[in-house]
Computed example of a mutant assay.
Amino acid sequence: MPRPSLKEKIIAAGVNTLHERGFAAAGIREITTDAGVPQGCFTNHFKSKEAFAVTILDRYHENTQAIMDRTLRDESRAPAQRLRAYFDEITTWLEAAGWRYGCLVGNMSLEMPEHSEILREHLVDVCRSLTQSFASTVRAAQAAGEVRNDLDADDVATFLLASWEGAMMRMKVDRSPKPIEQFKRVLFATIIMNCDPQ
């Protein structure tokens, strides 16, 4: 197999670096050290730290979409079970990380510099994509009688993403799974029906 390019090494390591250190705290030296590449490589491949963050968000979003392919888009499961499978798979990752890091999209949204329109617009696009994926599954669940039909699917999807991000934020503060467990209990007791609680 060909060796990964230096740019790919920076991107692959950069997802973890920004997750663990945060956008503001991660300097170019930390980013390249974590990637195991010379510091000069960064400016060879990225015009700015903002451009790097956009690339990292894209990679993180690709990883999230892969999880959604295995869960939300798995039509062998009932729609409500797809939603549970998605949240359960993310919960497994959060547990492996010691309940410390949360979601990179949420973290970046909080840390985004006020003047960074490029980063803000990219976060809007990523959040829109995530919401659309939830909305598609919610519509399928409504058609199957698993989600209340008196609720707008886009509203439910927006609520899901906002509540999930909030639960992960509180999880990071508490370093505890309790906010995640509370989110899932309320979600599957109120909005989503015909899905046995775990």
Rank of each mutant, 00 (worst) to 15 (best):
D88H: 14
G36A: 09
M169N: 12
E89I: 11
R185A: 14
T158H: 12
R175P: 02
D125S: 15
D196M: 14
L110G: 14
D152M: 00
I191A: 05
E75D: 15
P2F: 05
S116V: 08
R77N: 07
Q65C: 13
M1L: 11
M108N: 01
M168C: 10
V15H: 03
S76W: 07
A157R: 09
L72M: 09
I90E: 10
T64P: 02
I31E: 07
E111F: 04
H61T: 13
T17A: 11
P179I: 11
H115F: 15
A26Y: 01
I10W: 04
A157V: 03
M169P: 01
F183G: 03
D196W: 08
S48L: 02
V173Y: 07
A144N: 04
Q182C: 12
I31D: 08
C41A: 14
C103T: 05
M193Q: 15
V15I: 13
F159R: 13
K7F: 04
R170M: 10
K184W: 02
V173Q: 12
R84D: 15
A144K: 10
W93E: 13
R175T: 08
T158L: 13
I118E: 15
S133M: 13
I10E: 03
R29L: 11
M1P: 07
Q132H: 12
S129Y: 00
T91H: 12
D34R: 15
L130P: 02
A25N: 12
M1H: 09
A143C: 05
E181M: 08
L130A: 15
A141K: 07
F52L: 03
W164T: 08
I90K: 14
F159L: 15
I11E: 07
S129L: 10
S109Y: 09
A26H: 00
E114C: 05
R100G: 02
N63Y: 08
K49L: 04
S163D: 13
A51R: 09
G166V: 11
E95Y: 03
M193Y: 10
S176C: 11
F183C: 02
F52S: 02
H61Y: 05
G14Y: 01
R100Q: 15
R82I: 00
E30G: 03
E95I: 06
F87C: 00
E181W: 05
Y60T: 06
M68V: 10
S5H: 05
H19N: 14
R128W: 09
A12D: 14
E20K: 14
Q81C: 10
G36T: 03
A162H: 02
R84P: 06
E75H: 11
E62Y: 02
W164D: 05
A189E: 13
R3M: 09
E8T: 14
V124P: 01
G98C: 04
P179Y: 00
A189K: 12
V54G: 01
H45V: 10
W164L: 06
I180N: 02
A96H: 13
G166Y: 00
G27V: 04
R29D: 14
L130Q: 15
R29C: 02
S176W: 06
T43I: 13
V147G: 03
D58E: 13
A143P: 03
R139G: 06
T32E: 06
N63A: 15
A25H: 11
M169K: 09
I11D: 00
R148H: 15
R148Q: 14
L18I: 03
D154A: 07
M171K: 04
I118D: 14
C103F: 07
P4C: 06
E117H: 10
N107Y: 02
I191T: 07
A144L: 04
A25W: 02
T55E: 14
R77E: 13
E75L: 12
